[in-house]
Each structure stands twice: as C-alpha cells, then as structure tokens.
Design a protein around this nucleic acid. Structure first.
Length: 774
RNA sequence: GGCCGGGUGGCGGAAUUGGUAUACGCGUUCGACUUAAAAUCGAAUGGGGAAACCCGUACGGGUUCAAGUCCCGUCCCGGCUACCA
C-alpha cells in the first residue's frame, strides 16, 4: 500500500498553488465577500515561530472554509518592518536595515509558503518600502491639514537606552517596552495625533463590536471616561491673614480643578496640584518657593518605578491659599506627586472624608477632615467629561522609521511637504546611532535635510519656493500599521492610498486575527478609520467586524519560549522531521481552545500525525454507503458549526471521531470525499491529494437534518436524578410519555429503586430523559 | 487595591447552556502481528469495591424532579490595570 509521505505531497501541491494562484482575490460583483487577515508579522531574523503558525493557520482555516463555500475571499499577507530590532542590528553590525529587512522578508515568505497558506501573494506589502510609506506620509498630511497632527512641548517618556521618546502605551511598568530600561520624563517638543478628538466615538462604539469582551473592556478602561465637573477656586494672596474674600491681582487668580464628585465640595479642605502644574510658580509664596521647586525637581527626576513603588504620600505646602466657593473657607494649596499633570486639569480639590488618597495625605500633613453633607454643586462648577486617554505621541528620534513629511522654515514653523514630493525617502546613511541631542541619526544626513518648499505669501498671494530644513524625527511604527488593512485592497495603486472601488467591495475587514496589541494598534486603527471616514475616504466607521484574539503557545514546560531558555520549538523543524505542514497546522488547531494559551506537547503532535495517516490510509469498501450516512451528516454539521464558532479543537475532534467510525464500519467513497472536504481547511495538502484521487472538487458539503434523526432513540431513566437504566424505543414513542413511563417502571433495575412507590415522574422529550421521583 | 477570566481523570481538554460528567487526543496496561523492536491494528482505562452499589467537576451551604452549569459564602490560580480625583 502507498505510504503517507507528507513532504512529497506538500511539495507537489505547493508547487501547483505557486503556479496556478488559486487564491488570487478578485472582485466578483454579486458574490458575498470575506476579507480575512492576521495582524501582519514583524519579520525577525529568527524566522517563523509556532505562534505565527497558530495565527496564520486560524486565518487559513477560515479562508479555505469560506473559499470552499465559494465566497469571494481576500486573504493578503504583509510585513511590518520599521522598528527598533532592525535598527539596533544595524548599529551593531553596520548592515543597512533595508538589507536586513529584505533578507528577513524572503525568509518569512519562504517559510510561509512551506505551510501551504491560501494567500494571495500578489498583494504582499512591506511598510518600509517607499511605495508603501509614501501613503503613510500622505495619511500623516491629511491629519496635519485637519489639525489632528500637531506639535506640543511637554514632559514625555524618554528611554535613555534607546534614546527616543515613547508613547504612553509603550511604557510598561515604568520601563521601555523594547529594551526594558527605566524610562524618564523629559521636556521636549513632539508630534502628536489628536486621538482624543474621537474619544467619545471610540468608546461608544465598542459595545457593538464582535470582539472578545476582554479586549473591549481593556479599550474602555484605556479611554477611561469620567463625568464630573470643573470647579474654579479663587486664589487668596499668600500674605493674606484673616479677612476672607481678598484675591491676588497677578495674572493667575484662580485654580480650576476637575472632580467626579462635585457634590462633596463642602468637604474639600485643601487643593493639590501636580509637580508639573504649568502655573505652579505663580501660585507659590516667596517663603515656600525654594522648598516647592526642590520638590518639583525631585519629582521630575524620580523614575516612574520609584513613583509607583513608593505609594507613601509626599508633598509640600505652596504657602498659598484658595477659597472654597461652597464654604467660603480659606484652604491651603499643596503640591504633591499623587496628582497627575496629564489628567483633568492637573489640580484637584481634596476631600479627605470621601477619598482614600486625600485622607491619607490629610492624615500625614495634619489637614482637616470634614464629614460634610453632599450638595447640588450646580452653582459652583460646570459639568465636564474627562478621558484618561491622552493624545498619541508619534514622533521618534530614530532612523529606521517612516520620515515625517514636514519641513521647518527659518522661524521654526512646520510646513507640510507637498503631496507631489512624496515619498520623502529615508536616506541611506552610515551611522545609525542616535545620541542624546534628542534628534535622530537623520540629522547627520546634511544634504537630505535641505528642501525647497512652496510657500504662499500672505500679502500678495503669490507662491514662491523657500529653502527649509526637514523634520528629522520618524513616525512611530504604529502609524504604518494604522491603515495597512486598506492598502491590501489595492496594494499597487500608485495614485491612491487605496482604491475606492476596491475598498467599498472588500472592506471593512470581516475577521482579524491576532494575539497582541489589545489596546494600542486596535485603538489606533479604529481612530484612523473614523478620521478617514470623516474625510470621505472610507465608507465605514469601524475597520474590523470580528476580532479573534488567540492565546500564545508556550514551551512543553509551560514557560514562554525563549532563545535564552533554549526551549524554542521551530515550526519548520517539525515539518522537516517528517511530520509535514499538515500535521503542524492541524495540531495547532487541535491544541486547545483558540483563546487560551497552550503548552506544546510533542507527543500530541504524533497523535495528530497518526490521525492524518489514518485519513490517508482509509480505502473505500464496496459496501453501500447508507450505513455511515448518519455520522457523515452529523460530522458535516459539527465541523461546519464549529468553524463558524472558531471551535477548531472540537472540529478536529469530530473529524477524528468520524475516521474512527469509518475504520469500524467501513467507508464509502462518498465518506472519503466528504472527509477530505472537511479536512481541507486544516490539512490542505493531504485533502487536495485525496480529492484528486477521487476526482472531486472541494466544495463545502451540506448536511441534511433528516439523516440526523434515527429510527430508535435512547431514553435515559433516572430515579431521583440518578441514572438507573437506558431504554431503546422507537422514535415515534417519544410522543407517548405514558408508554415510556410504563416501560421504565417495569424495568428490573428501575423496580429495585421504586419499591416504596413513585411520587411523580418528569419526562423531558428534548433531553430524552425520564426522571422518577420516589 | 480595582476590574475581568478560570479551578473537570495521570495530562491537554469535551459537555447541545439546567438534563447520561470526562467526547477527542496524549499517557498507561493488555492482546494481535514480528525472531525481536519500531510502526500498525484491536481492547481496557475517574476513584473505591468480588459484586450489588457507593463516591466523584477547588471547598462549604442553597435553589431544583435534576447542578460542572444558577444563587450565597470561602480558598486558590491567571490576565489586565494601577494614586486617572
């Protein structure tokens, strides 16, 4: 008999798919479409890991499932290539990131092709390709023109190791998400995207998304909407002593606080401002100035870790007072680092009777705690909604990123590079290393820095060319991935970021599969979607209909796979060992529920390999095919419904049951064709081989409910809820409760438990259960 | 500290959402084939017990004819978040 030789079969079919391009996506008017994608990978030098394989296989199962149902399916592939690893490698080895990236892409592509994914390879994109980032720059300019890309000088997270600023989302536990170095705060002028403009819509549309609740909750918390009020507290002169109502006459005469509990204002016994509070120096009294400034300095120097670890309240009295507008009492103003400058107004009214943090502070500094009555605050403040989310900091002082298409005139004002001049090409340089100057290595590309930009004279209206200096910061990599799902619909369009005809057919993405970026990427892409919808470029406001967020695959010891621990499973090794891609893919779908982490189990891989062998070795018998018709239709139904629900593990289990049954009772050719069709999303090479053998197409089979009801049914008989007997009756008898009850009561085993008489019986037809209560 | 998930055989996990607990796979044991081993095929496999039966879904209560599933309390484990006023 012919042996199952996966590597041979797989090579044959991969070659065929390479030549015939059966997975080329085409607009087919009138045919329902599915647009399915994974979060595109960062092509590291290490090649694909088993997590990628899980990610891509989920997409592939769904792609093939819909393709076999003859829907029009778009399943693209691309590479997210800008970022620190390639640049750090360049600094270390002197190899250009451009070159390393292309090598890594080639490796990823070859590996992906060996796993038999149904990808439309003509749509590959690469975010560091000028053809691509030309349009990232175009997107930036649209935001800039609408005032949603702007510069602001403020305290920013700074990673001293990577010599770059970081976004809030890139600081994890006070450490840089890339290198793990403790971050600092540094006052710098930076570029921001005004995502807060869409905070309300980003929040309110979350509920309607078909996304995992976990992700939805995380996004809600990140946006962090709070409703409350802003209340103005008039400043009292620092020298003031006794009479109330006298206010300072400097430019600053009040402090506005934000509170979610304005009704507690009668209990507000002091104010606190953040160390970074902009007007701090106008508040503080001369006596207190030295102490306050010293405190401010020490707070700025403290790393985020130190601030977090030491929750002990610290602070300094500013020597100044304000008037509580409700009580008209004079209350002291403190500066303390438990108040955050970036949230609300950077100042709070402290109500120690109602707020734990304020109470802690009051107790430490011996401030009054008043249990005041709640009130209607209307006369004191104005209602205000505040968000935890800040604007998105998008400039990076690094070389290997998308250049920001901006130039500065001699007065330092930013001007857009005209769209005709795009792309602003990232110049080749030799020395990639950033320095502490706060500028990227691009600052050293002297020739590149100079650019002629057309300027309109405000008086004459005439346009003249003016020499300017280019922006040397590059864009955060998340900018590149905030629109790539739309580029896939027309990846070679040299006139537009995306084509209107293509976008309205394919988009929004129906199913998006990933295991990371719960907040940042998925929030940014929603933000850009709403922005470009407002500009009329997108005919929808949410980019992703359904999100599948799968778990990680850990090492056999349950720990995270890592090179240093030496516990990494290389997926291509699994293939080359002789198991083949079909076993790898099917195993990763069988490994457990899609949303859970799972540990790699080499022995279970063998189990799946045995299963595929059994599929391959099944031969049709001459028997009539009707004896398997019930399980055949049951399996079609189960596998179909499971794939819709993304229960891939139980879908594979159902196929295993089917095969076990076919071994027991014999398989007809019809069984083998159905099996191959159902198996194809998981093990496409083997399934294609089987379908070819039986000269069948791969169209997804349908089940007929009539084959799922058998002539006889099994009735479970319980006594007081405990299983005591099983009756096999004709299906028609299900309607006859009396007959079933009589049969049950005359059963010998049941009789043993019902000798003291029967109180009542409960028959549930749906569950085929009869419970006898004694 | 706050929010959200979870605790089911030796292991990964099933269970039509209140209706036969442990599907499927791994492991283990036995058998067939083999000089032998591997591979393959077949059988068994929650615990206790000769058996009849009893006990079993983290623990303690409750609701119900019926609870892994619902309610109350307790204990663990995981994730996110972390002074957001």
């Amino acid at each position: 008999m012919e042996r199952y030789e996966p590597l041979k079969i797989e090579e044959k079919w991969q070659k065929k798919w390479e030549e015939e391009k059966p997975y080329k996506a085409e607009i087919r008017e009138g045919v329902p479409k599915k647009y399915i994608a994974e979060m595109f990978p960062y092509p590291s030098g290490a090649g694909l890991h088993v997590g990628h394989v899980r990610n891509f296989t989920i997409v592939d199962v769904l792609t093939r499932f819909y393709e076999q149902q003859r829907l029009s399916v778009l399943r693209p592939f691309g590479y997210d290539t800008f970022g620190l690893p390639a640049e750090n490698y360049a600094i270390k080895t002197g190899t250009a990131p451009q070159e390393v990236t292309l090598t890594n892409i080639a490796n990823f592509r070859n590996q992906a092709k060996r796993l038999g994914f149904a990808i439309d390879w003509d749509r590959e994109i690469n975010t560091s390709d000028p053809e691509y980032y030309k349009w990232t720059q175009w997107c930036f300019l649209q935001l800039f023109k609408k005032g949603l890309a702007y510069q602001k000088e403020s305290y920013q997270w700074w990673c001293p190791e990577d010599q770059t600023v970081l976004a809030n989302e890139q600081v994890e536990n006070g450490k840089c998400w890339r290198c793990g170095h403790e971050v600092e705060k540094k006052k710098m002028k930076q570029w921001f995207f005004k995502i807060t403009e869409y905070a309300d819509e980003l929040l309110s549309e979350i509920d309607a998304l078909d996304w995992p609740d976990k992700i939805k909750t995380m996004q809600k918390n990140w946006i962090g909407k709070s409703t409350g009020a802003e209340i103005e507290f008039k400043l009292v002169t620092p020298s003031f002593s006794g009479r109330s109502g006298e206010v300072v006459s400097t430019s600053l005469n009040s402090i506005t606080v934000f509170t979610t509990r304005p009704d507690t204002i009668y209990g507000a016994t002091f104010l606190v401002v953040a160390p970074e509070y902009a007007e701090l120096e106008y508040i503080v009294s001369d006596d207190a100035r030295d102490a306050v400034m010293a405190y401010k300095q020490s707070a700025l120097l403290k790393s985020e870790i130190e601030r977090q670890e030491n929750k002990e309240k610290t602070g300094v009295f500013t020597g100044a007072y304000a008037l509580n507008p409700a009580t008209n009492e004079k209350i002291p103003i403190y500066v303390a680092d438990y108040v955050l400058s970036g949230y609300g107004t950077g100042a709070i009214m402290a109500v120690p009777a109602y707020d734990d943090r304020d109470r802690e502070f009051a107790e430490k500094f011996d401030l009054p705690i008043i249990e005041a009555d709640l009130c209607d605050f209307g006369q004191f403040g104005t209602p205000k909604t505040t968000y935890r989310m800040r604007d998105w900091l998008i400039s990076r002082q690094r070389y290997w990123g998308c250049p920001i298409p901006i130039a500065y005139d001699k007065d330092g004002n930013p001007h857009a590079i005209p769209e005709e001049q795009l792309p602003v090409i990232l110049p080749d340089i030799k020395d990639y290393k950033p320095d502490a100057s706060g500028r990227s290595a691009l600052a050293k590309a002297k020739d590149w820095l100079k650019v002629e930009v057309p300027v309109k004279d405000p008086k004459t209206g005439k346009i003249h060319m003016e020499e300017m200096t280019r922006e040397t910061d590059t864009l955060d990599g998340y900018a590149c991935s905030s629109w790539y799902l739309w580029r896939y619909v027309s990846p070679h369009d040299s006139e537009h970021a995306w084509g209107q005809e293509e976008i309205s057919y394919w988009a929004p993405t129906d199913i998006y599969v990933g295991a990371d970026h719960a907040v940042a990427h998925l929030l940014y892409i929603r933000f850009w979607c709403k922005f470009f919808a407002d500009l009329g470029y997108l005919p929808f406001r949410e980019p992703i209909k359904k999100l599948i967020y799968h778990g990680y695959i850990n090492a056999p010891d349950g720990k995270k796979m890592s090179k240093s621990k030496g516990n990494v499973i290389d997926p291509l090794d699994v293939v080359d060992e002789g198991y083949g891609a079909d076993t790898l893919r099917t195993y990763e779908m069988f490994i457990g529920p899609v949303e859970l982490d799972a540990a790699w189990d080499p022995r279970s891989v063998g189990g799946v390999y045995r299963f595929l062998n059994r599929c391959f070795n099944l031969a049709p018998s001459e028997d009539d095919s009707d004896k398997t018709i019930a399980i055949r239709h049951k399996t079609i139904k189960k596998v179909t419904e499971d794939i819709y629900k993304c229960n891939f593990n139980t879908a594979v289990a159902a196929l295993m049951e089917y095969v076990n049954e076919l071994y027991k009772v014999g398989a007809s050719q019809e069984d083998l064709v159905i099996l191959a069709k159902l198996l194809k999303p998981f093990a496409p090479h083997l399934a294609s081989e089987m379908l070819e053998k039986y000269n069948s197409d791969d169209e997804w089979p349908k089940w007929d409910e009539k084959y799922l009801v058998s002539d006889t049914v099994e009735i479970v008989v319980q006594v007081n809820g405990k299983l005591r007997a099983k009756l096999v009756v004709n299906s028609d008898d299900l309607e006859d409760e009396d007959k079933i009850t009589e049969m049950a009561l005359s059963d010998d085993k049941v009789k043993k438990f019902t000798s003291d008489g029967v109180k009542k019986t409960i028959f549930v037809k749906r569950a085929k259960i009869l419970n006898i209560v004694v």
